[in-house]
Design a protein around this nucleic acid. Structure first.
Ligand SMILES: Nc1ccn([C@H]2C[C@H](O)[C@@H](COP(=O)(O)OP(=O)(O)OP(=O)(O)O)O2)c(=O)n1
Ligand SMILES: [Mg+2]
Ligand SMILES: [Mg+2]
Length: 985
DNA sequence: ATCCTCCCCTAC
DNA sequence: TAAGGTAGGGGAGGAT
């Protein structure tokens, strides 16, 4: 709990959650489309000889016109055909679309269709001819659509940055050399040898994650451990001595207990600071003796990042406004014109602090504003780990059916324990809490329920330092008034969608049928929601299964300037992953690289010191020939993947490497060398009665070599991982003056890019797969288990696998090979002139072009001139294949490629896509959608177009053509900025 | 139907 | 200053 804000962090742009919200709206629209289609019946043959193609915004919308054509015997061309389309329907005719039409193409306003139907005859087109550049501002959208989108965008309010602040921030003139200020470095050099360990040493989320993994391993190792359960034994004694112990459960009733430490980090921290008990305290990296505000760093734009928080909280939610922990909408009282509140996060705050509105994950600056008396204390990770170890030692002495939820939290299935002892569940909880208090000095709270969900919700009621039980019979009443967000597994996006459906509380959610929920959320999720809101949860308490992935990410402090630095960083990160694979005793076969890239419209300097700021992410992965733990192999792939992404180095803000398709190093059935040693081995014994009955030493494992068979073929794929959904065009959502500044910033960025010429480039990159012909063999295991050092130090250490080594250095040293990959950097851009695409761009998931446009327009001054009773109308958005949404247009692209994959693409179709995308750029300013459509197109081409003959070549050409055409418009509109686009191989 | 890939979402 | 990691559940949609 309290976890509301913490993952605002990851999406400080607010898009991730916007995604679900937007998606909900899109679904609604799609539904309306469907209904409309269902009603289509031919009522006349009025347009027998007419074939229309709708371009741009129209009223009625393209889909509605499509229906009308169907009803009146006409044809509707999703794609413009210069030979068979008789009429192009459009409300205006910007240069962008006019130039792609055949000469003398009739372009008429949509009213021509409507009026002709009214008159039941085809009217002359003259009065409806659209003049080039004529823009009809009096468009009206049709019923359902405008209301839907109009309602929805009221949540997206204008972020009213104060002009003076923003302009100061963005003013480049004040900061003569942005690049220098960046690399010279207040931010520690990303390439320092100790960067990774320094970062992880301080990252609470890293610890949280690794501890959970270790604890899950530990718990798993207990399953077959037939040692005594001291806690259980004590309860049995209790039950013998007391006749009152006859608690029973219904035949199939379970008894689940959830135990969670109170404000864990703070509680542990206060053990050594008893004088602070009773005062509001928070754990943060922000030094306690420095002010909660810092001097504004030049080049940053706190408002820019804060605006995302604003958007987030504008969306409907069952939460109070307060729950957005990092809503910084109210200007910090303590900040003055040249200071900004600290962006350091609070990992945990105690209940005294929470009464002032503080939440875990909140920024310290904001917290200090809410609670001026707040006392900051530093992290003490060793102490947390120690407390965690004690907690789990206690828990596992009661039952082996426990599930590690986190370092301060676990689920216990105490059904058997209750049945055996007859002890009241609440008594068990009291015992456990008491022992936790004794051993750790910290308070734990507990929840008891007939299932996991109710137990967890009960815990929240019990907190702090308490417990609560919800019985089967109380469940319905207990859950009724809870906001849906309180249901475990229902987060921000899901809650928003539910609220859209009218279900803010569980009681309201109960009124929605399973069928509707399943349709809306999918089968499993729909059923889960249906059950959860009734207090039903069938999940069992289980120890986690085999790990499916091992990864290392750093999305903080990444400020690189040269390709060598990137290369070095990737090697270091690969070594980290290699280490983790070794520790997990697995080998991996698929490498995935994830990068966060500064969005072109985000300031070069992030508001949060070292933060990733407003970014989009890209991932690209490659299936290796064989399983590996070799850091050189991983690094080589990572570099190769990075190269293929052509990322502008200075815009990198986050990098991650993930290994999947794991295979255990151990033979089946062999006991793993669990990390329990770390948790239990050194656990100090207390009294016999309170000592967890786990014999650590008995749970050891021998490494066993495993043959690795090479079966899979190497393959590369691209993941378009939308880290965030964003429903409004960034630029458009801003007031004009601020947008101009942003555009200036774009220019500056472009200029910087030209200066540095530091893109990764793929021009020299050659697939490494061919060199990977040998296999890991049994020898690899031995090497692996002995190679405790970093893999990258291999030059001085035994090779993990001589065969791997041999292959990776086949053409010289690995380093040399890597170096060669980057040899041409710097000039490649000029060489590859036709494609000026440097990067993929936007992420967004703006899944509803029309709505976005509408939101956009709402924020534009000119629309303030509309009549008062007229809400801003949504002009018909650009459409592709009749689709007006991002997902719809991507679908259209998919269909197109799928249909035509057997042959070369037709120019008409290509033009259609070009027109659509250009309109998105020129009219909607929806670069996110453009980017997504291009990504889809690229991926479809790569995956489904036949590789035989020249067909693939023509598709690649088509892609490049489309990209170039789009870039033309982007450059025109954004002063020579080039849209980042994933290059086609 | 079921599996696979590429995502989104959630939790601490 | 600040340390925004990481793994799993599952849905959409295509392949089999
Ligand atoms: N955004 C967050 C949330 C949690 N944590 C860490 C610090 C917490 O102390 C610990 C446990 O998380 P909980 O959700 O259990 O929160 P607390 O234990 O702090 O408070 P409580 O459980 O009493 O609500 O995880 C964190 O670093 N960042
Ligand atoms: Mg807790
Ligand atoms: Mg917890």
């Amino acid at each position: 709990m309290g976890g509301r804000g913490q993952f605002r962090v990851q999406s400080d742009d607010g898009w991730a959650s916007m995604g679900g919200y937007m998606a909900a709206k899109v679904r609604k629209l799609d539904q309306q489309f469907e209904e409309q289609k269902g009603k289509e019946e031919t009522v006349s043959s009025l347009f027998e000889n007419v074939a229309i193609h709708v371009n741009g915004y129209t009223s009625p919308t393209a889909d509605q016109l499509k229906s009308l054509m169907a009803q009146h015997g006409g044809r509707y061309h999703a794609y413009y055909s210069s030979t068979s389309t008789t009429h192009v329907i459009a409300s205006n005719l910007p240069r962008a679309k006019a130039k792609d039409l055949r000469p003398n193409q009739k372009v008429v306003k949509p009213e021509w269709i409507v009026d002709s139907i009214k008159a039941n005859s085809i009217l002359p087109i003259q009065p409806y001819i659209v003049a080039a550049h004529g823009v009809d501002k009096n468009q009206r959208t049709i019923s359902g659509f405008s209301s839907t989108s109009a309602n929805s965008n009221t949540e997206v309010d204008v972020p009213c940055c104060s002009k003076d602040v923003t302009s100061d921030r963005n003013s480049k003139s004040e900061e003569p050399s942005l690049n220098q200020s960046k690399s010279s470095g207040k931010i520690p050099a990303t390439t320092d040898n100790n960067f990774l360990s320094d970062f992880y040493k301080h990252s609470r989320l890293h610890f949280l994650s690794t501890w959970k993994t270790e604890l899950a391993d530990f718990v798993r190792s207990l399953v077959n451990n037939p040692l005594e359960l001291s806690g259980l034994q004590k309860l049995e004694q209790l039950s013998k001595n007391s006749k009152a112990c006859s608690y029973s459960l219904a035949s199939n009733e379970r008894c689940i207990m959830h135990v969670d430490m109170d404000c864990f980090f703070v509680s542990v921290g206060l053990i050594s600071r008893p004088h602070l008990i009773g005062q509001p305290v928070a754990v943060t990296h922000h030094s306690a003796d420095t002010p909660s505000t810092a001097k504004q760093r030049p080049g940053t734009d706190p408002e820019f990042e804060r605006n995302y928080y604003k958007k987030k909280i504008k969306r409907p939610s069952t939460d109070n406004e307060e729950t957005s922990s990092n809503d910084v909408s109210s200007v910090a009282k303590s900040s003055t014109s040249d200071t900004v509140p600290s962006f350091s996060e609070i990992a945990s705050c105690n209940y005294e602090a929470r009464s002032a509105g503080l939440k875990n994950g909140m920024f310290y600056g904001k917290a200090k504003d809410l609670c001026p008396d707040l006392i900051a204390i530093p992290y003490d990770f060793e102490a947390y780990r120690e407390a965690s170890r004690k907690l789990y030692g206690i828990l596992c002495s009661y039952t082996r059916t426990l599930e590690a939820v986190s370092c301060d939290e676990a689920l216990l299935d105490v059904t058997q324990l209750i049945l055996q002892t007859g002890v009241e569940p609440s008594t068990v909880a009291e015992h456990i809490r008491q022992r936790v208090k004794e051993e750790t000095g910290c308070n734990a709270s507990a929840g008891i329920g007939p299932n996991i969900a109710l137990a967890r919700m009960a815990t929240r009621v019990g907190k702090p330092n308490g417990q609560h039980q919800v019985t089967e019979s109380e469940a319905a009443e207990f859950i009724k008034d809870h906001p849906v967000k309180d249901l475990p597994g229902v987060g921000y996006a899901t809650a928003s969608r539910l609220v859209e459906l009218g279900a803010a509380t569980c009681g309201e959610l109960q009124k929605i049928s399973v069928d509707v929920l399943k349709k809306e959320f999918g089968n499993k999720t729909g059923q889960k929601l249906y059950d959860l809101c009734r207090g039903v949860d069938k999940r069992e308490v289980v120890q986690s299964k085999e790990r499916k992935s091992v990864s290392a990410d750093v999305n903080y402090g990444i400020r690189l300037t040269t390709i060598d630095e990137v290369k070095t960083f990737l090697k270091n990160l690969s070594a980290e992953v290699s280490d983790r694979l070794n520790k997990a005793h697995v080998t991996g076969k698929k490498v995935t690289l994830k990068v966060m890239v500064r969005r072109p419209d985000a300031p070069l300097e992030t508001a949060k010191f070292g933060g990733h700021g407003v970014c989009h992410t890209m991932t690209r992965s490659k299936n290796l020939d064989k399983f590996t733990v070799d850091c050189d192999v991983i690094a080589k792939e990572a570099i190769s993947l990075m190269t293929s992404l052509k990322v502008n180095v200075s815009d990198l803000r986050g990098i991650g490497i993930q290994m999947t398709q794991l295979k255990s190093d151990f033979e089946i059935g062999e006991r793993r060398k669990s990390t329990m040693e770390k948790f239990v081995k050194s656990r100090p014994s207390v009294q016999p009665s309170t000592t967890p009955a786990v014999d650590v030493e008995s749970v050891t494992a021998e490494s066993t070599a495993q043959e690795i068979k090479e079966l899979d073929q190497s393959s590369t794929r691209v993941e378009e991982n939308k880290q965030s959904d964003f429903s409004t065009s960034f630029l458009d959502a801003l007031p004009d003056d601020i947008r101009r500044e942003v555009e200036q910033d774009l220019q500056a960025q472009k200029a910087a890019l030209e200066r540095t010429q530091n893109q990764m480039t793929s021009s020299v990159h050659s697939e490494s797969a061919s060199s990977m012909t040998s296999q890991n063999t049994a020898t690899s295991k031995t090497n692996r288990s002995s190679s405790r050092g970093r893999g990258r130090k291999r030059s001085t250490a035994p090779k993990k696998s001589s065969k791997v080594k041999k292959t990776s250095s086949a053409g010289g040293s690995p380093n040399k090979l890597i170096t060669e990959m980057f040899k041409v950097v710097g000039k490649s851009r000029l060489d590859e002139k036709p494609v000026k695409i440097d990067l993929t761009t936007s992420q967004s998931s703006n899944d509803d072009v029309g709505d976005k446009v509408q939101v956009t327009r709402k924020l534009q001054p000119e629309f303030e001139e509309l009549p008062v009773d007229d809400r801003p109308r949504s002009p018909s958005p650009p459409s592709l294949g009749g689709a007006t949404t991002t997902s719809g247009s991507r679908d259209a692209v998919r269909r197109w490629v799928a249909e035509c994959a057997g042959a070369s693409p037709m120019q008409d179709d290509i033009d259609e896509i070009v027109t659509f995308l250009q309109l998105l750029v020129v009219e909607s300013h929806n670069l996110e959608c453009v980017s997504l459509v291009l990504r889809t197109l690229r991926r479809c081409i790569m995956s489904s177009v036949s590789r035989e003959g020249g067909i693939i070549t023509s598709w690649v050409k088509a892609y490049d053509f489309i990209v170039e055409k789009v870039q033309e418009e982007v450059r025109r509109l954004y002063d020579d900025i080039t849209l980042y686009v994933v290059p086609i191989t």
